[in-house]
Amino acid sequence: MTLTGRCRVLVVEDEFLVALQIENDLAAAGYTVVGPFTSLSASIAASRAEHFEIATLDLNLRGEFVYPLIDELVARCIPILLLTGYADSDLPERFRALPRLGKPFDGSLLVRKIAELLPAE
């Protein structure tokens, strides 16, 4: 787990209980969780300040969409996993191709997705 232990995951999720579960699942899989962040501004600030290899993003943060953050991360070529209850059609077109996991999700599926998205070492 040393390999993954070094791997840091930015978690943006405004629902504490959901974030708690993500945190638990990722921690159990050996990842280090950066966050979770519950607001867009806090998330963006953290994304610029913190070091991380991958991000899991909730779309709706108390009414604010994380789109600006997504654009920024895409620009930085940081892998993104969207965690959302929204359907495909609710997303702006440009984000529909992003990897996505629907809520509620299975913890093991989350971990496997994260692993897939990380570049092979």
Binding site: V18, T84, D90
Partner: peptide
């Protein structure tokens, strides 16, 4: 309406995610 539907879907799924989390915890 679309937003509401999306919102509702989001909330339901969010709620389920919460329920799932509560259950686990």
């Amino acid at each position: 309406r679309n937003m509401l539907v999306a919102e509702l879907s989001h909330r339901v799924k969010n709620t389920l995610a919460i329920v799932s989390s509560i259950s686990r915890q």
